[in-house]
Amino acid sequence: MSAFDWLVDNAAIIGEYAAWHIYLSLIPLIAGLLLALPLGWLAHRYRGAYGPMVTSAGLLYTLPSLALFVLLPQVLGTRMLDPLNIISALLVYTVALLVRVVADALAAVPGETALSAEAMGYRPFQRFCLVELPIAVPVIAAGLRVAAASNVSLVSLASLLGIPQLGSLFTTGFQLDYVVPIITGIVGCVVVAWLFDALILLVSHRLTPWRKAGSTT
């Protein structure tokens, strides 16, 4: 069977795998960002908390992914094939990666900007949402791009547990001793990672229109 014939015959399942891959990568990315923002703010706001929080996050990120995938069903009480296990594991990695990114991004906000906001009567939470966070968006977006690529890569390991996504094409290729599914899975993962990267860049540019205006002057 030619590569083209195989792709045509399996187009539906490839599309299904791609949809699952996007879902399993995107949900923990969004949820991880929402959790990392307040945690990063706390680490920035209370400098005594920075070291313990960043160190703890770093230790979490070093956990072996496959071991975490196997351990979580026992912790969560879920079935081994439940996608929630993958989402939860990637949520841990996303938060672990982004806590330091958010804290350092907020720390990079010019001190005079924060003082000016305080002088205008902004309370700490208002200053965070309306002044510091918008300025920190480019740095946070850079960290989010790394987290997105990491998630897309790690999701493929779920094929070892039998959870359908693009990584399942790797096991199919090995079982059939046929390289086309493997190449298709690799290309699919690259495309998904590229789409996430492009989306993050687009949102970042939309949230920081002054940077574009400044670059054209």
Rank of each mutant, 00 (worst) to 15 (best):
L176E: 11
A147W: 03
T172Y: 07
D197Y: 12
D177L: 09
Q126V: 13
S168D: 13
G185W: 01
V203E: 07
V190H: 08
V131G: 04
I200Q: 07
A119P: 08
T172E: 13
T113K: 08
L144K: 01
V180P: 07
D197N: 10
E112Y: 09
F170T: 13
L157V: 11
V137L: 03
S156T: 12
L169P: 01
S168A: 14
E132C: 07
L201S: 10
E132R: 09
V139S: 13
S150V: 15
R145I: 10
G121H: 15
L195P: 00
L195T: 10
L166S: 03
A198K: 04
G185R: 00
V179E: 03
L207K: 02
A117V: 04
T171N: 15
V155H: 10
A136W: 06
I140A: 08
I183C: 04
S150E: 12
P181L: 05
G188D: 01
A119R: 00
R123M: 11
A193H: 11
G167M: 02
N151H: 01
Q165Y: 03
V203K: 03
T171V: 09
G143Y: 01
V155Q: 09
S150F: 07
G167V: 04
A142E: 15
L199F: 14
G111F: 11
F170H: 11
W194C: 10
R123I: 13
P138W: 11
D197F: 07
V187A: 00
R123E: 15
L133A: 04
C129F: 09
P134H: 06
F196Q: 03
S150G: 08
W194Y: 08
L133R: 01
L130W: 06
W194S: 13
A149Y: 00
G167A: 04
G173A: 03
C129R: 08
G185D: 03
R206C: 13
A141M: 07
L161M: 14
L130I: 07
V180W: 10
S153K: 05
L130H: 06
L166N: 00
L202G: 00
V192N: 02
F128G: 09
V137N: 06
V190T: 10
V146C: 00
L154E: 12
T184D: 02
A147V: 01
V155T: 15
R127Y: 13
L199C: 12
V187W: 00
L195D: 08
F170W: 04
P124C: 08
I135E: 15
P110F: 15
V192E: 00
L199K: 12
V190Q: 07
F174W: 00
F170L: 15
P124H: 11
A148S: 12
V191L: 03
I186N: 08
S153A: 14
Y122Q: 11
L133T: 01
L133N: 02
L201P: 00
A136M: 08
E118K: 12
A114G: 06
S156D: 02
L199N: 07
L133I: 02
D177Y: 02
S150A: 08
V203C: 07
W194K: 14
L195K: 00
P110I: 15
A114V: 12
G121A: 11
S204N: 13
P134N: 04
I163R: 07
I163G: 04
F196M: 06
I200F: 06
G185F: 03
